[in-house]
């Protein structure tokens, strides 16, 4: 199953829970952080909506 390994957002009230959350001041910074996290974690960045990006790991060996 795919796993959310990080959440990047500009609206901190919209998110919460287990994965690390990166709160960013503006959309530009949010996109940049999502880009970096995608490369760092080898996990795909997905745009949930304008204010939330999910970093999702699909490697089967990571469960």
């Amino acid at each position: 199953m795919a796993k959310i390994v990080a959440v990047v957002t500009t609206a901190k009230d919209e998110v919460g829970g287990g994965a690390p959350i990166f709160i960013q001041p503006d959309p530009e910074r949010m996109k940049k952080t999502a880009f970096l996290l995608e490369k760092l974690l080898d996990a795909a960045a997905h745009e949930l909506n304008e204010t939330v990006y999910l970093i999702v790991d699909r490697h089967p060996e990571n469960g």
């Binding site: 880009f35 995608e38 795909a44 997905h46 745009e47």
Partner: peptide
């Protein structure tokens, strides 16, 4: 369409980054 990629009418995936 925004982050969503379609081939024909079939939904393929959600791509978050503009570069991709």
């Amino acid at each position: 369409e925004g982050p969503n990629v379609y081939v024909g009418e079939v939904y393929m995936m959600n791509v978050g980054l503009e570069e991709d």
